[in-house]
Simulated scan of single mutants.
Amino acid sequence: MNNLKAVPYQFSDDGIIPNHPDLPVLVYPEAFKNNPHETEAIFNSHGWLNSWTNGVFDYHHYHSNCHEVLGVIRGTALVQLGGEQEEQVQLNTGDVVLLPAGTGHKRLSASPDFQIVGAYPGGMEYNTRRGTQEDRQKALAEIPKVPIPDTDPVYGKVGPVHRLWGRGTHRG
């Protein structure tokens, strides 16, 4: 694993995708570059559970009741984070992206072999919301209630989630 590094991306509410009002997306470049096959086990060992292996939907969606971590275990993908006008990020094998509750994400393109592992702090059950007004109204009430996780999904008791998502940074 690299040296406790993550690149933060902060997104604003665009009127469709709420994003998180306080917490940035964290991209951990090459976090598991040398051991992508261990991604799920490492997430699970740090208390990020309810894990699955698949891809990323090709439409904007978000989870308003929990945070989500995604680790690329094979292939590459171009994803858009934060909504239609926001950041396009290239993800490669070994990269990890941590999405705070409410953060829109969508697959724009991917290699044929692309696979990710997803997981949630404490194994929380996640919802899937899209860009509808009904979903948005529910999400705006749910997002501020999502607690900051006790552990960083990549590094455990230390790491960027503690430094960049510290307890003093969220409302609620």
Rank of each mutant, 00 (worst) to 15 (best):
H170E: 07
V89S: 03
H60L: 11
V97C: 04
S111A: 07
H63F: 06
E125V: 14
N35M: 13
L98A: 13
N35K: 11
Y28P: 09
L70H: 06
T93C: 09
A31H: 07
R129V: 13
V158G: 05
P153I: 14
L99F: 14
E134Y: 03
W52N: 14
P112R: 14
V146M: 10
K145A: 12
P160D: 08
Y120T: 13
T128C: 10
T39F: 05
G102W: 06
N3W: 03
M1A: 08
I116G: 00
V146W: 01
V72Y: 09
G55D: 04
G47E: 00
T128F: 04
Y62N: 04
N65D: 15
H170V: 13
V158K: 13
F114I: 01
V117D: 03
A110T: 06
K33A: 15
K157W: 00
L91C: 07
L26Y: 05
N35H: 11
V117T: 10
S12V: 04
M124G: 07
D13M: 01
L78W: 05
T151K: 10
H61G: 11
Y59W: 10
S12L: 05
D13R: 02
P144V: 06
R167F: 11
F32M: 15
L26P: 00
A141D: 04
V69G: 08
N3G: 00
V117K: 07
R167M: 10
D150C: 00
H162W: 05
N34C: 04
N34F: 01
V161C: 08
N127D: 15
H67A: 08
G71I: 08
N65L: 07
P121G: 10
P112Y: 13
P36V: 15
H170M: 04
P36F: 14
V7G: 02
H60E: 03
V72C: 08
R129T: 14
H170S: 09
V79Q: 02
V27W: 02
V7T: 12
Q85L: 12
E30I: 02
N2M: 04
E38T: 14
G75W: 03
V27L: 15
W48E: 06
R74M: 13
G123A: 11
D58Y: 10
T53G: 05
K106L: 14
N34R: 05
L99A: 03
N54C: 03
G156N: 12
D95R: 01
T53N: 11
H20L: 11
Y62H: 11
S64Y: 04
S45D: 03
Q85H: 12
G156F: 07
H61I: 09
S51P: 07
R163K: 12
W165L: 10
D14Q: 04
R163Q: 12
L4T: 06
F57Q: 11
D150I: 03
D150H: 08
Q133P: 03
L78S: 11
D22Y: 12
D13N: 15
G55Q: 02
L70P: 00
L81S: 05
Q137C: 03
P112F: 09
G55P: 01
P112K: 07
L26S: 04
L70M: 13
E84G: 03
T151R: 08
P21A: 14
G104P: 04
I16D: 02
H63I: 14
P21K: 10
